[in-house]
Design a protein around this nucleic acid. Structure first.
Lengths: 249, 249
DNA sequence: CAGGTTTATGCGTTTTTGTGCAGGAATTTT
DNA sequence: AAAATTCCTGCACAAAAACGCATAAACCTG
């Protein structure tokens, strides 16, 4: 096999699988590992692949995983925020959790909207506070510095006193089998209370989090009414959730 | 699995869920915990994640915007803040109102101080939240957008439930004859409750506000224990307050 | 086409890198 | 204060890379 031919093959494999191991290549093509390494070296200096210890990675690999922009997946979250906002009408009482998706929604609220937002998330409260026509009710209690949200029995008791029109949950993981799950026990307690205190529960989740699971369970799918992602409602990824009875937007 | 690949996966997880545990990662990827820790270490030095005991946090999540410029008489307020801080010792429960002077104090708290701060002022809470060793208790209720503080009967009821060691009041006007006065009825109600709920009441006031009067009365001079201004304690302006029985610092 | 030159490849040795493990220190939780 | 995690440090070991060298094929070139 010619050198050029071999390199073309390698490049093809890299682009196909996003990664190659030099060890597997050298048995495939039946040349020594040195040769493979030299090929990868060349392809790397030409910028065709990214060489790493043990093999090489495709360029798209890096693009996918190493997001350099500030908030992760911000554009998707903007789309979600817009969909969520379309559910809100004047005069509503709205409970919200924390999280960057909720924050994005808070920032995008139309200025003429008049509604009452109830939350214990300090960053979210900050955003609501800047809005000219929104009433903000703060859920008080001890602050969890990790999640920047008030947590504890007081907070839960206060949430149980309200009956909101909509509850928007920033979702950490959602899965057909395990429902909504999260990774912070205190926050989960809070979300449970919020779900109970709302006529309608809306989950906001970027598509990447759909079909993922976290250690602590918040609730079953049947307890939530609507799922909002950045994908169109008819995306096949969301089909199972439609079938499970959720309104998917 | 290649090292880079693994790190990309980890980063992805961190960005998705805002937090990862090294223990769960190491079972997911099936490598030793040391390897995970080394990966997190690397990602942390590259600034991609924030490493903490037991795992890592997403960077984008932790940044809460706050502006510090444009505060009136900031230098005087820094002096006042320092004097106020000298009153605080470890383990204390401290009630604070809002206002820029209180904010300046919040920013200047020494990092090793361990205390519990109770407040309904959102800007103050933000500052306390950034502090490594301070517990923050939020007084919940409706937010007053003018004063950026929670107001209402709920807030007052919650304040009455505590007995703080010190209460720091950002003061709007103080006068020998009329005592502490202010211009927002709701805020005044709150301050009254705070005064009642504290063993010691400390007024922070820039000298400019000394001997001025506002429409609504908070309390008489005899209800406060200490007055802090940027002036030295023996300044003639403060003499009448000394004579009235206040500790002037 | 003979002889020199370049290019491509493989081999053995030495370095470097990646990983896991053991212990003791540090930190968190109870 | 005690118990349980998590972290760090040094070490061992294996895999991979780097380097120098040898060989041979390919390719000039007069």
């Amino acid at each position: 096999m010619l050198k050029k031919e071999r390199q073309a093959y390698i490049l093809h494999q890299v682009n196909l699988h996003n990664k190659v191991l030099s060890s597997s290549l050298c048995t495939e093509i039946n040349v020594s590992e040195d040769t493979i390494r030299r090929d990868l070296q060349e392809l790397a200096t030409e910028g065709k692949v990214i060489k790493v210890h043990g093999g090489a990675l495709s360029h798209s690999f890096n693009q996918v995983y190493f997001s350099t922009n500030g908030v992760y997946s911000q554009n998707q979250k903007k789309v979600i925020a817009q969909k969520a906002i379309s559910l809100i009408s004047n005069g509503m009482f709205i409970l919200t959790s924390g999280g960057t998706t909720i924050l994005e929604m808070a920032r995008s609220l139309p200025p003429q909207l008049k509604a009452t937002f109830i939350s214990g998330s300090i960053p979210a409260i900050l955003e609501y506070m800047h809005h000219p026509n929104i009433e903000v009710i703060v859920i008080g209690d001890k602050i969890s510095k990790n999640s920047k949200i008030t947590i504890g029995s007081e907070a839960i008791a206060k949430i149980k006193e309200v009956k909101a029109d909509i509850c928007f949950l920033g979702t950490n993981a959602i899965d057909i089998e395990h429902g909504i799950t999260d990774n912070d026990w205190e926050v989960v307690q809070l979300k449970k209370a919020m779900i109970e205190s709302s006529k309608m529960v809306v989950c906001l989740s970027i598509a990447e989090k759909v079909n993922s699971v976290q250690p602590i369970k918040v609730c079953d799918l049947k307890e939530i009414d609507m799922l909002i992602t950045e994908l169109p409602a008819n995306d096949p990824l969301l089909k199972p959730y439609c079938d499970a009875g959720l309104r998917v937007v």
